[in-house]
Design a protein around this nucleic acid. Sequence first.
DNA 1: ACAATAGGTAGGAAAAATCCTACCGGTCAA
DNA 2: TTGACCGGTAGGATTTTTCCTACCTATTGT
Lengths: 115, 115
Amino acid sequence: MTSPVAELVDDDLWSAIGDPTRRRMLDLLLAGAGTATTLSQQLPVTRQAVAKHLDVLNRAGLVQATPAGREKRYHVDDAQLARAAAQLASVGSAWDARLRRIKTIAETIQRTQHS
Amino acid sequence: MTSPVAELVDDDLWSAIGDPTRRRMLDLLLAGAGTATTLSQQLPVTRQAVAKHLDVLNRAGLVQATPAGREKRYHVDDAQLARAAAQLASVGSAWDARLRRIKTIAETIQRTQHS
DNA sequence: ACAATAGGTAGGAAAAATCCTACCGGTCAA
DNA sequence: TTGACCGGTAGGATTTTTCCTACCTATTGT
């Protein structure tokens, strides 16, 4: 169980959530669905910039849009975000396990050298 | 406990591990310390590009360099990687909890409407 | 039906990241 | 000591990302 982290994650999904602005957008969308305009009002960027970020999130499958009247309401795709959360957790624990394993080996070597 | 994910993470650290190449580099360095050259031999980029990626990882505190002879051996900073792992895990569980909470609310509303 | 207005889209400019070529410095062998 | 070579560094070109300006579309109210 060497668990190479690289093979544990979806690159597109990962880099989608790698951007701070997009993470904040996910936070806002989790609090309640909204349009590019409503999001931009709560962020330090124009709604056009927000629209492109939404496009990135959409291509990664993290958000979906449902037309409502003349607007497009974006909402988080629960299943995909859950998938992302699972990946984050597994990478985190993989690293943790790896570190723990290395530490154990190091301690074993030291103990061996002491004898 | 609304847990806004944005305030849970260190942006520099996060975007450092947001890049696929850098994640693979961390994998390789966890398997054993190495120089820019040895890493580049196991990656599809030149050692100069690797050097810049190492610089990014270094600024984020994820790796450290120790001069050894005429080379510079890079190794993972255990404490910082553990910190990163913890952040990943907490974001993952924050999202998971948020999703679960939303689902519960939705179900409650439905149940209410049925009555 | 028509004007007014809010929202989305297209295109490109500016900024940043990534990558490579060229160069410098130190180490090892003779 | 000196030449060859391995590794790192500096600088800049290229690609990608991010962001904004300008424009078009659709809905709403009169």
